Amino acid sequence: MEKVDFLAFGAHPDDIECGIGGTIAKLTRLGYKVGLVDLTLGEMATNGTIEQRQDEAYKAMEILGASFRINLEIPDRGINLTPENIEKVVEILRKAQPKVIAAPYWVDRHPDHERAGSLVKEGFFSAGLNKVLPEIKPIKRPEKYLRYFLTISATPSFVVDVTEYYSIKKRAVLAHVSQFAHRPEFSQTFLNEGQFLGRIESRDLFFGAQIGKRYGEGFVLQELLELEHPLVLIK
Rank of each mutant, 00 (worst) to 15 (best):
E2D: 09
E2Y: 08
K3N: 12
D5E: 05
D5Q: 05
L7I: 06
A8Q: 03
G10L: 07
P13H: 12
D14R: 06
D15V: 15
I16C: 01
E17V: 01
G19W: 03
A25E: 00
L30H: 12
K33A: 09
L36V: 07
G42I: 00
G42P: 00
E43A: 10
A45S: 13
A45D: 02
T46Y: 07
I50N: 03
Q52E: 12
R53K: 08
D55E: 15
E56L: 04
A57K: 11
Y58C: 02
K59C: 07
S67R: 10
N71I: 03
L72G: 08
P75R: 13
P75N: 13
P75D: 11
D76E: 01
R77A: 09
G78P: 05
T82F: 04
E84Y: 07
N85C: 05
V89F: 09
E91D: 11
I92W: 01
R94Q: 01
R94G: 01
K95D: 10
K95C: 09
P98I: 14
A102L: 13
Y105S: 04
Y105I: 03
W106H: 15
V107K: 14
R109P: 04
P111F: 13
P111D: 11
D112F: 08
A116G: 10
G117M: 03
G117E: 01
S118Y: 14
V120G: 07
K121I: 11
E122Q: 14
E122R: 14
G123V: 08
G123T: 12
G123D: 04
F125R: 11
L129E: 10
K131W: 15
K131S: 14
V132T: 15
V132H: 07
L133F: 10
L133M: 08
P134H: 13
P138M: 09
I139F: 04
I139P: 00
I139Q: 02
I139K: 04
R141E: 07
L146P: 01
R147W: 06
F149R: 12
F149L: 06
L150Y: 08
L150D: 08
L150G: 07
T151Q: 12
I152C: 05
I152G: 02
S153D: 05
T155E: 14
P156V: 13
P156N: 15
S157I: 04
S157Q: 07
V162Q: 01
T163Y: 06
E164T: 05
K169E: 00
K169G: 00
K169M: 01
K170P: 00
R171P: 01
A172V: 13
V173R: 00
A175N: 05
A175D: 03
A175I: 03
V177Q: 12
F180R: 00
A181S: 13
P184I: 08
E185H: 15
S187L: 04
Q188E: 15
T189C: 06
L191M: 08
E193C: 09
G194M: 08
F196V: 06
L197H: 11
R203Q: 09
D204Q: 13
D204R: 09
L205P: 00
L205N: 03
F206E: 07
F206A: 15
F206V: 10
F207L: 02
G212D: 00
G212L: 02
K213L: 01
Y215Q: 00
Y215W: 10
Y215S: 02
F219K: 11
F219M: 10
V220Y: 12
L221M: 10
L227W: 09
L227A: 10
L227E: 09
L231W: 11
L231P: 01
L231S: 13
V232R: 13
V232Q: 13
L233Y: 03
I234K: 14
I234V: 15
K235Q: 05
